[in-house]
């Protein structure tokens, strides 16, 4: 065998050259291409012709050759929620949809989705598997629809968008209330007191509001502020309640806790500054600036249900 290899049989001078000579004696062997290589090359040439017919290929005028290849996949219709089989000419988008439908994890996802759809809120919350699913799917839904305002983790922006991770809820933190908020949206409103209260009255009210959450100690000014708050001049208690703990049905904030949703009190160092941000806010009020859109026409009932559970567990699931 070793003696039969081509190189052993043929002296190198017997190999053909291309006939060119450079620098006097540099020549190039005209060795044949390896057979396997040659046949692979012919095979690719044949394949390229087949390719033109099967896949989208040549541009023709304003359009292109679409190819005979088709992709079959099933798709859920958004409006009716029904699954329908579709056939589409070959493209990578259709291929992706086919892959998604054929993948083993997709049936699992569908099963889980059906389970969550059928379960009550209480059942979902108690079931570790369903909660894992809700957190994973909810994260995507939240990122797509809610994170633009509330932030990726639901932490919100003080003065702009409520923080969804704390235990203070303007409109109620129960699952049904969150669901309601998602479905119909919310519109925050507080009248502007700039024209009603004089600057020193605003100052007194701010002083009083700060004592409510223990930011400052009670004082004479605060006592005057209390009178405005609880009395007919300010009338704040209509919405915030006589105990100032807020009324969720009005979306009125609880002023006695440590959480500030609009006036950024924690960020201010001095009492003067804290009062200033409150006064400024009370003078201007809230009108058409804090609006949560309604999602009932944008998201499916299942998505809203998933989001309600997701947001509920973000906020500590009280």
């Amino acid at each position: 065998m070793s003696d039969n290899s081509p190189n052993a049989q043929q002296p190198s001078s017997a190999v053909q050259t291309t006939g060119h000579a450079w620098d006097g004696d540099l020549q190039e062997y005209n060795n044949p291409l390896p057979r396997w290589w040659l046949w692979s090359f012919y095979a690719t040439a044949v394949f390229s012709v087949l390719y033109w017919f099967i896949y989208p290929s040549w541009p023709v005028g304003n359009t292109w050759i679409k190819g005979f290849g088709t992709v079959n996949y099933t798709m859920t219709d958004k409006a009716s929620g029904k699954e329908e089989a579709r056939e589409h000419r070959w493209n990578t988008r259709a291929l992706l949809l086919e892959d998604l439908g054929a993948a083993t994890n997709d049936p699992q996802r569908k099963d889980m989705l059906a389970k969550v759809q059928a379960a009550s809120y209480d059942q979902i919350v108690k079931d570790p598997k369903m909660m894992e699913f809700v957190r994973s799917v909810g994260k995507g839904l939240f990122g797509d629809n809610c994170a633009a305002c509330h932030g990726r983790g639901g932490q919100g922006v003080v003065g702009m968008y409520p923080n969804l991770t704390d235990d203070d809820w303007l409109w109620g933190g129960g699952m049904d209330k969150i669901h309601e908020t998602l479905v119909q949206g919310r519109k925050g409103f507080m009248p502007a007191f700039g024209a009603v209260l004089k600057p020193d009255q605003l100052d007194d009210v701010a002083e009083y509001v700060l004592t409510l959450s223990g930011e400052t100690q009670p004082s004479e000014a605060a006592e005057r502020g209390r009178a405005i708050f609880q009395g007919p001049v300010g009338g704040c208690y209509y919405c915030h309640g006589a105990d100032a703990k807020g009324v969720p049905s009005q979306g009125a904030a609880n002023l006695t806790d440590k959480i500030w949703t609009i006036a950024n009190v924690p960020a201010q160092k001095s009492v003067q500054d804290k009062k200033a941000v409150i006064e400024d806010f009370v003078a201007r009020g809230v009108n058409n600036t804090r609006i949560m859109p309604a999602w009932k026409d944008r998201l499916s009932p299942t998505d809203i249900k998933l989001l309600a559970v997701y947001v509920h567990q973000l906020g500590g699931a009280r």
Binding site: D166, D168, N254
Partner: peptide
């Protein structure tokens, strides 16, 4: 540790990490 948000300030002034 879940780092977004890094912590949550609660209504009683407590701190929560997830």
């Amino acid at each position: 540790q879940i780092r977004q948000p890094l912590y949550t300030q609660l209504s009683d002034g407590g701190i929560r990490n997830n």
